[in-house]
């Protein structure tokens, strides 16, 4: 504890509570309240209703939720495979090429997502690769945006695994593929799950690039929420936002409950 006096500790806690309250809790509370509000003219809502949730669970909202989940799962899975492969391959590469490829992987995370969307739109709106107006371009956009996080997480995990595990496995007769399946990947599992979870959460909330490239019939929930609130249906948008957050949270909790023996070192 850095603060030893009782008053100092109380002050520190108060500042922390204020920051957490304003930055995290207040927006969440407002959204939740708005999602069950029938009328809100004063400081607090004057009338509550579940009508917005009923709207959210019917019609196009359900399709949007499904589009978000499918996009998130697929893009995250592809990014995980790609990021893991790249991290494993680049581990033993010489420093200079590794640094260059590191930058290549991390560029999408540094560029605004709208720019990524625009870039894809420009690149794939003409032959030979014509993706504009297809589902594929949405997956590609999400894949590009979350790849950096998958690669970063897996690389960090690999850096923490002592090479002796793999060397011992090799000395015992394990060929590279056997070693990868039975030693490297199980040891990496906590990082793989973290990479997938982060990618999925980011994909579920992605708006900037998606809004540039989504085709008719594949509207993700953030795009839907943006559209609904833009039309003034703020309470319906709030209900969809809560639904989006609960779904993402449910998937993340499920992922975090996967038993990882290697994590219990």
């Amino acid at each position: 504890m850095l603060v030893w006096s009782r008053a100092g500790r109380a002050g520190a806690w108060a500042v922390l509570a204020l920051l957490v309250g304003v930055i995290y809790a207040l927006p969440a509370i407002i959204i939740i309240l708005a999602s069950v509000t029938g009328q809100w003219n004063g400081v607090l809502p004057s009338h509550f209703t579940l009508r917005h949730y009923a709207n959210a669970l019917h019609g196009s909202s359900a399709a949007m939720l499904r589009a978000s989940i499918v996009t998130g799962l697929l893009a995250s899975a592809l990014a995980l495979v790609n990021g893991s492969w790249a991290a494993l391959a680049l581990r033993n590469t010489r420093p200079l090429p590794r640094r260059v490829l590191d930058i290549v992987f991390f560029i999408p995370s540094a560029v605004p997502s709208v720019s990524v969307g625009l870039g894809l739109l420009v690149a794939f709106s003409r032959p030979p690769v014509l993706l504009n107006g297809t589902l594929a371009i949405v997956f590609v956009a999400h894949f590009v945006l979350v790849s950096a996080y998958s690669y970063g997480n897996v690389s960090a995990g690999l850096a923490r695994i002592t090479p002796e595990y793999e060397q011992i496995a090799e000395s015992l007769g394990a060929r590279p593929w056997y070693r990868l399946r039975h030693v490297t990947l199980p040891l990496l599992m906590p990082y793989l799950i973290a990479a997938f979870s982060l990618s999925f959460a980011l994909s579920m909330g992605e708006l900037g690039a998606t809004v540039m490239v989504y085709p008719p019939g594949w509207v993700t929930l953030p795009v839907g929420i943006f559209g609904i609130t833009d039309r003034g249906a703020v309470f319906d948008g709030s209900a969809l936002t809560v639904l989006l957050a609960v779904t993402a949270l449910a998937v993340l909790i499920a992922l975090s409950r996967i038993p990882i023996k290697a994590a219990q070192r």
């Binding site: 002592t162 060397q167 011992i168 000395s171 007769g173 060929r175 040891l187 070192r265």
Partner: peptide
């Protein structure tokens, strides 16, 4: 290494934790 028929024990044992 996998073709050498060698057993090896290292300082930190490197037992597979999983």
């Amino acid at each position: 290494p996998y073709a050498r028929s060698i057993g090896m024990v290292v300082q930190n044992y490197a037992l597979f934790p999983h």
